[in-house]
Design a protein around this nucleic acid. Structure first.
Length: 863
DNA sequence: ATTCGCCGGTGAGCG
DNA sequence: ACCGGCGAAT
């Protein structure tokens, strides 16, 4: 798509068009109908700058999309003059869809994208301005670390405690502050050898990126800013084009992103405006003969800023009015998501942060259920409560997909997963290993990257050893030296390997691989031409081969898939399937973008991969970290591990503002819940192999007592645990009291809760279909199935652990009596499922109905 | 002489 | 679960 077409030739927008909503009087504007007064104001305000302070669940996406739609519909702007920026690809595609619903095809030419995609588009067009060519590759954090690892080894900096991880973190932070190596060197303390070495590493890293014709992820933003600052004429093109800039999640912007916004919203002075191509029309100019600054709309909630650790600067939103004089502020406080009890808890928690703009969420929908609190004796006990409660919710009408379980750290999933498996609750973990981070996928992608950028040493070095073909570090180093000495590409160096002098076997490997790469490169480029600097593809060329075919060629010739299949490890079968899935992803890309080349594919992948945000929640409970939960909502939410040291996390308490950020994280978690909220913790928690005593989180004390219905309060647990000693916990919590089970009065209300409204899909919004995501979703599903098979097949070391029990051959039939370690005696009412996934349905004398995975549950049959 | 594959130590906050 | 180090295989 030629996203860079110029203004619609038919004219120039009328500055400050109508849209006051009062025209005609009778028919209400459909774009503002049904909005509350604040929302309406946020749609209709027209000034140089607008800050929409949007509390959780206050309908900000609606406001933003309606605002865009109104600008277009009222002819205040052409679609091509709109730039809307989000943080994730998912948010971008959701917004695009919703604008399309409002406007139909009139969205053509609009940029709705993430910061990173927008910058890539700009950089690809302009990169030759500063010594890169358009076919640059984008290094993800693993690539950066691979590069840094080499640099650290070469500079022998490891003895000073430099590791790829900590160095890349520091460089990333600096880049987010728009610092480069030279700038940092100027302020660094020369007397400190560590500082000197760091400067050397940083500098070398910059050099090598440039030589590799590569950008790291942070560069995408930072280099765009540098480009604009160094080349005002280039900046003017974009300043002129984008008349309306809209930025979502503004509280998450870092300094570089802020600077980018500043650059894009500068006016163009008369001198530069004069030289623009195509020439400016009088209507575009202001009185001084320049082009006025674009209007800026930002949406955010400083209470949901949880990304300070990766550079987000909360000051950007706090100081917005100072930064952009004449800015109007609109606050959206009415919440359309949660019950009042949930909101009151959220308000109470966040109120303890002193440095915030006053904001109070409220709803017209009523109090709803009380929040449920539970303290387990151990994380195991806590997890069991979660599993049981999920089944109770199910029985009162909730679907598994309506339920989410949040935790602070990924390590907490272990106990949860174990209990969910045993209770036969279908679940999936969001945000685990990403598709594109898997080794085999990165291997295959390295080939494609190297084709697009034969000077990229990271990609090349990776593909040499994948699959193993007898080319080790020694051969690699010699080749690299040869390549650098001659100033030729890695591919050419391989073809000329005989000039270096290798043994016959290695030489054969190298030249064979070199030939394969050349062949694939010709195929990918089409018509024999390499990808040219400038990115200008001459139309006369033969079109490049579909990406999938290039990929197939490589996979076939290297026999990567066959070699994986030949191994006995069942994990390798999954890896082979992942590679096949990658071919499917490429195929879909080809269908979607006919004629597009490898470069577009690589770009899309690197941008999607960074925020691999798939979201298919059909029929399974969702497990995720609190960070991942941002932006989502669920009818029922469990926040687990609400303990000191975990939430707030131990590491945060020493950081300035750390606890405040943790509090915002808690706030984000609470406000994800629509109807039911559970806060759970354990009084002891295993960490590092030791078992430590855990204290209830300070955040719990901040919630008014009357909002929480403690099924088992922290007090009860510590008091009793103290009396019974360590190993008593299991006996104590067996048939639990303090939990008025099914028949109790407290439970009656539960069944009255309706989970019907907004069931599942409507709540979050379906992910965009028909794009790269759909292939990924299938992969996700496959991964889940593979895991399931593995789990029940027994070979999953980390999950069930050494204490795995195996009742695989236990035969149960309705009517059998069984004894369960925790629930006591019960009667089997039915058995479903097959093989290792057989599930017993049983009624226990103490706790009532339960589902149990026969293979793993601690049960025995009573004869 | 290199490269491969296995073993055991070490270490896990969030994207 | 990741890596670096060592011995075995080529």
């Amino acid at each position: 798509m030629s996203e860079f077409e110029l203004l619609d030739p038919s004219g120039v927008p009328l500055p400050g068009g109508a849209g006051s909503g009062s025209d005609a009087g009778a028919a209400e504007d459909p774009l503002t109908a049904g909005l509350n007064p604040q929302q309406r104001r946020a749609v209709e305000a027209r000034g140089p700058a607008l800050l929409i302070v949007a509390g959780a669940g206050s309908g900000k996406t609606r406001v933003l999309t309606h605002r865009i739609a109104q600008l277009i519909r009222n002819r205040e702007a052409w679609p091509s003059q709109i730039l809307a920026i989000t943080f994730t690809n998912k948010a971008a595609s959701e917004m695009r869809e919703r604008v399309q619903e409002l406007l139909g095809d009139a969205t053509e030419g609009m940029w709705i994208s993430t910061f990173h995609s927008a910058c890539v588009r700009i950089l690809r067009r302009e990169s030759e301005r500063f010594g890169y060519v358009s076919g640059f590759t984008i290094y993800d954090s693993a690539d950066s670390r691979a590069l840094l690892k080499r640099i650290i080894r070469e500079t022998e900096a490891d003895s000073y405690g430099f590791t790829p991880a900590n160095t890349s973190g520091k460089i990333s932070r600096l880049k987010n502050e728009l610092q480069d190596a030279a700038g940092y060197a100027a302020t660094a303390n020369e007397a400190d050898p560590r500082e000197r070495i760091f400067v050397e590493i940083f500098h070398e890293y910059e050099q090598q990126l440039r030589r590799a014709n590569a950008f790291d992820f942070d560069d995408l933003i930072g280099q765009t800013v540098h480009l604009f600052r160094a080349h005002p004429d280039v900046a003017a093109v974009y300043q002129r084009r984008f008349r309306h800039l809209l930025v979502d999640e503004y509280q998450d912007t870092n300094h570089a992103q802020y600077a980018l916004i500043r650059e894009l919203t500068r006016p163009v002075d008369a001198d530069l405006a004069d030289r623009l191509v195509p020439p400016v029309r009088p209507a575009e100019l202001d009185a001084s003969g320049g082009i006025p600054a674009a209007s800026l709309t930002v949406v955010g909630d400083s209470d949901q800023s949880i990304y300070a650790f990766r550079g987000a600067d909360i000051r950007n939103i706090v100081e917005f009015e100072r930064d952009f004089p004449g800015a109007e502020v609109v606050k959206l406080e009415q919440n359309y998501r949660s019950t009042q009890n949930i909101l009151s808890a959220a308000n109470a928690v966040i109120a303890s942060n002193f440095d915030r703009q006053e904001k109070n969420l409220w709803t017209a929908e009523g109090a709803g259920e009380r929040i449920v609190g539970f303290t387990g004796y151990s994380q195991h006990d806590e997890a069991r409560f979660v599993a049981e409660e999920i089944e109770d919710l199910r029985r009162s009408g909730a679907a598994y997909g309506d339920i989410a379980v949040f935790y602070r750290t990924n390590s907490q999933t272990r106990a949860l997963e174990e209990l969910l498996i045993r209770s036969a609750v279908p679940y999936r973990v969001l945000g685990g290993t990403k598709f594109y981070e898997r080794a085999e996928i990165k291997d295959a992608m390295a080939y494609l990257t190297s084709l697009a950028n034969p000077y990229d040493p990271i990609a090349w070095s990776r593909l040499l050893g994948a699959p193993k073909r007898g080319i080790g570090p020694m051969a690699e180093a010699q080749l690299a030296n040869f390549q650098e000495g001659r100033g030729i590409s890695f591919h050419e160096a391989m073809l000329r390997a005989e000039e270096i002098g290798f043994g016959p076997k290695v030489l054969g490997s190298i030249t064979g691989l070199g030939e394969l790469l050349s062949r694939a490169a010709r195929m990918a480029a089409g018509g024999g031409a390499a990808l040219e600097p400038g990115g200008a593809v001459a139309d006369a060329e033969k079109p490049p081969a579909p990406v999938a075919e290039v990929l197939k060629l490589i996979l076939d010739e290297t026999q990567m898939i066959e070699k994986l299949r030949a191994k006995r490890d069942p994990q390798d079968e999954a890896r082979a399937e992942n590679l096949e899935e990658l071919v499917a992803v490429a195929r879909e890309f080809d269908v979607r973008n006919p004629g597009a080349g490898l470069l577009e594919f690589l770009t899309e992948v690197s941008l999607v991969a960074a925020a691999d945000d798939l979201d298919d929640r059909s029929g399974t409970v969702s497990l995720m970290t609190l960070h991942t939960a941002k932006g989502l909502e669920f009818p029922a939410v469990f926040i687990t591990g609400v303990e000191e040291g975990l939430l707030p996390h131990q590491m945060s308490v020493d950081e300035v503002g750390g606890v405040n950020e943790e509090r915002r994280l808690m706030y984000v978690g609470i406000t994800r819940a629509r109807e039911r909220l559970y806060l759970t913790l354990a009084s002891t928690r295993a960490s590092y192999g030791d078992i430590g005593v855990a204290m209830p989180s300070r955040f719990l004390q901040e919630i008014p007592e009357e909002l929480i219905d403690w099924r088992q309060s922290p007090g009860e647990v510590t008091a009793r645990a103290g009396g019974s000693g360590g190993s008593g916990s299991r006996a104590l919590n067996a048939p639990r009291e303090g939990r008025p089970t099914r028949s109790g009065a407290g439970r009656g209300a539960d069944s009255a809760v309706s989970f019907g409204r907004g069931s599942g899909a409507a709540a979050v919004g379906e992910p965009a279909s028909g794009n790269m995501q759909s292939a990924l979703e299938r992969w996700r599903e496959r991964k889940r199935l593979a895991k399931e098979a593995q789990d029940s097949g027994g070979g999953f070391p980390n999950l069930i652990g050494a204490a795995v029990r195996d009742n695989g051959d236990l035969e149960l039939a309705p009517g059998d009596r069984i004894r369960h370690d925790d629930y006591g005696e019960g009667r089997v009412t039915g058995v479903t499922g097959e093989g290792s996934k057989r599930v017993a349905h049983a009624v226990f004398d103490s706790v009532g109905e339960r589902k149990l995975l026969i293979k793993l549950s601690p049960i025995t049959k009573i004869e």
